[in-house]
Amino acid sequence: MRKLVVTTVAAILLASGPMAFAAPHQTTGSIKQFTAGKSLVLQDGSTFQLAKTFKDPGLKVGEKVSVTWDMSGKNKIAESVTVTK
Protein backbone atom coordinates (compact mmCIF):
# COMPACT_ATOMS: atom_id res chain seq x y z
CA MET A 1 0.00 0.00 0.00
CA ARG A 2 2.81 2.41 0.90
CA LYS A 3 4.46 1.75 -2.46
CA LEU A 4 1.24 2.69 -4.25
CA VAL A 5 0.92 5.97 -2.32
CA VAL A 6 4.55 6.96 -2.96
CA THR A 7 4.21 6.14 -6.66
CA THR A 8 0.97 8.13 -6.94
CA VAL A 9 2.45 11.18 -5.19
CA ALA A 10 5.55 11.06 -7.40
CA ALA A 11 3.40 10.87 -10.54
CA ILE A 12 1.32 13.86 -9.44
CA LEU A 13 4.42 15.95 -8.71
CA LEU A 14 5.99 15.11 -12.07
CA ALA A 15 2.76 15.85 -13.95
CA SER A 16 2.23 19.21 -12.24
CA GLY A 17 5.68 20.56 -13.20
CA PRO A 18 4.90 21.43 -16.85
CA MET A 19 1.64 23.14 -15.86
CA ALA A 20 3.58 25.76 -13.92
CA PHE A 21 5.45 26.73 -17.09
CA ALA A 22 2.25 26.88 -19.17
CA ALA A 23 0.84 29.80 -17.20
CA PRO A 24 -0.01 32.82 -19.38
CA HIS A 25 2.17 35.92 -19.25
CA GLN A 26 1.07 39.54 -19.07
CA THR A 27 2.63 42.59 -20.75
CA THR A 28 1.55 46.22 -20.76
CA GLY A 29 2.40 48.96 -23.22
CA SER A 30 1.11 51.33 -25.89
CA ILE A 31 -0.03 50.09 -29.28
CA LYS A 32 2.35 50.91 -32.12
CA GLN A 33 0.61 48.85 -34.82
CA PHE A 34 -2.60 46.83 -34.88
CA THR A 35 -3.86 44.63 -37.69
CA ALA A 36 -7.35 43.36 -36.80
CA GLY A 37 -7.47 39.59 -36.73
CA LYS A 38 -3.71 39.18 -37.25
CA SER A 39 -1.16 40.93 -35.04
CA LEU A 40 -0.43 43.55 -32.41
CA VAL A 41 2.86 45.42 -31.96
CA LEU A 42 3.63 47.49 -28.87
CA GLN A 43 5.88 50.58 -28.73
CA ASP A 44 8.67 48.53 -27.13
CA GLY A 45 8.70 46.19 -30.16
CA SER A 46 6.85 43.28 -28.54
CA THR A 47 4.91 41.50 -31.28
CA PHE A 48 1.90 39.27 -30.66
CA GLN A 49 -0.10 37.07 -32.99
CA LEU A 50 -3.81 37.29 -32.22
CA ALA A 51 -5.61 34.09 -31.26
CA LYS A 52 -8.37 32.90 -33.60
CA THR A 53 -10.85 33.48 -30.77
CA PHE A 54 -9.65 37.08 -30.22
CA LYS A 55 -12.46 39.65 -29.85
CA ASP A 56 -11.41 43.21 -30.76
CA PRO A 57 -12.52 45.63 -28.01
CA GLY A 58 -12.00 48.59 -30.40
CA LEU A 59 -8.22 48.93 -30.14
CA LYS A 60 -6.51 52.03 -31.57
CA VAL A 61 -2.87 52.99 -32.14
CA GLY A 62 -1.48 54.85 -29.12
CA GLU A 63 -3.79 53.26 -26.52
CA LYS A 64 -2.22 51.69 -23.44
CA VAL A 65 -3.14 48.01 -23.21
CA SER A 66 -2.54 44.93 -21.12
CA VAL A 67 -1.86 41.78 -23.15
CA THR A 68 -2.31 38.29 -21.73
CA TRP A 69 -0.27 35.92 -23.88
CA ASP A 70 1.31 32.50 -24.13
CA MET A 71 4.04 30.99 -26.29
CA SER A 72 3.25 28.71 -29.22
CA GLY A 73 6.54 27.59 -30.70
CA LYS A 74 8.46 30.82 -31.33
CA ASN A 75 5.34 33.03 -31.47
CA LYS A 76 3.68 35.00 -28.69
CA ILE A 77 -0.07 34.41 -28.98
CA ALA A 78 -2.28 37.14 -27.45
CA GLU A 79 -5.20 35.47 -25.70
CA SER A 80 -6.75 38.74 -24.53
CA VAL A 81 -6.04 42.45 -24.87
CA THR A 82 -7.65 45.00 -22.56
CA VAL A 83 -7.41 48.78 -22.62
CA THR A 84 -5.83 50.22 -19.44
CA LYS A 85 -5.63 53.75 -18.10
Rank of each mutant, 00 (worst) to 15 (best):
T7F: 13
S16G: 04
K52N: 14
P24R: 07
D44P: 11
R2T: 08
I31G: 04
S39F: 13
S39E: 13
G58P: 07
V61C: 06
L59Q: 05
V61P: 05
K38W: 09
S16Y: 13
T35L: 08
A51H: 05
L42V: 08
A23M: 13
F21A: 13
S16L: 15
T47C: 07
S66Q: 14
T82P: 00
Q43C: 00
G62D: 15
S80N: 10
S72A: 14
F48R: 01
S80F: 00
A36L: 05
A22F: 05
T27A: 14
P24M: 03
K55L: 05
A78Y: 05
L42I: 06
T7L: 10
V67T: 03
T53F: 06
W69Q: 03
P24Q: 06
K74M: 12
K74Y: 10
L13F: 14
V67C: 04
V83H: 00
T7I: 10
A15E: 13
K60Y: 01
G62F: 06
A15G: 08
T84G: 00
V83W: 00
H25L: 15
Q49G: 04
T7K: 00
S72T: 11
L13Q: 05
F48E: 02
S80P: 00
G45E: 02
E63A: 09
T84E: 13
K38S: 13
G45K: 09
K32V: 00
L13S: 08
L13A: 14
W69R: 02
L59N: 04
S66H: 01
V5T: 13
G17R: 05
S39V: 01
V83L: 01
L42G: 08
P57W: 09
L4T: 11
A22G: 07
V61F: 05
T8L: 15
A36Y: 07
V61M: 09
N75L: 15
